[in-house]
Amino acid sequence: MPEPSAPRVGLLVTCLVDLFRPSVGFAAVALLERAGCAVAVPQAQTCCGQPAYNSGDRGDAKAIARQVIAAFADYDYVVAPSGSCAGMVKVHYPQLFADEPDMRARAEDLATRTWELLSFLVDVRGMSEVAARWTKRATYHDACSGLRELGVKEQPRRLLASVHGLCLAEMPGAEVCCGFGGTFCVKYPEISDKMVGDKAAEIAASGAEAVLAGDLGCLLNIAGKLSRLGIRAEVRHVAEVLAGMTDAPAIAAPRR
């Protein structure tokens, strides 16, 4: 049980983790608890509103943002296992309410409390190692929003370095977009295909048995392409490995 003085963390589950891969949510909870936090999951959350925001539907994006701001008003911190959703809250919510001073203040308050999971564990909670074991040669894809909006780069690598048996094989193009881009991947499937195809080729060339990243959108895209191409590589959210919760079948992997 956490200390009574433990910081209260509201988990921003994200719509993709909620629907596709609850394992990632539980891995995040486990890591946060190990970092001494008391974790709660507000029921009033659905999605951060990014699909509406990036489609130019500012009205709906604001309505959903209001819901998130209210749902997470009472937590010391808000943590998401996604750089994209954390970036939406941290960087874009304040911009969304630029011309509504009251809401803007609330959005900014939330922004200062919101973190991407790896960045929170390392930068805020000072975590420097985990007690996990995973004997694999893995490569790491830097998801764009986490990398460029929130500066997530060293944090996952620092923690992965402490996983027993894990060997990290870096790709030269680790920072190049995988071609997911939310609705982009279905609006321009051929372009997205070229991008994720190049990513899959780099993964294959790295000789890694596994691919890790911190954003489920990218992971679904990459896993889907590897599977279509018949390239065998285990695709997982980095939190699963760090939490030592790798029993669930990997993303897009056969279950029987």
Binding site: V17, V196, G224
Partner: peptide, 16 residues
Amino acid sequence: GWTLVRDMPAPEGRTF
């Protein structure tokens, strides 16, 4: 638009 070029990973089944 998705499955034209890649497989769609199946959800684990239950929501978080």
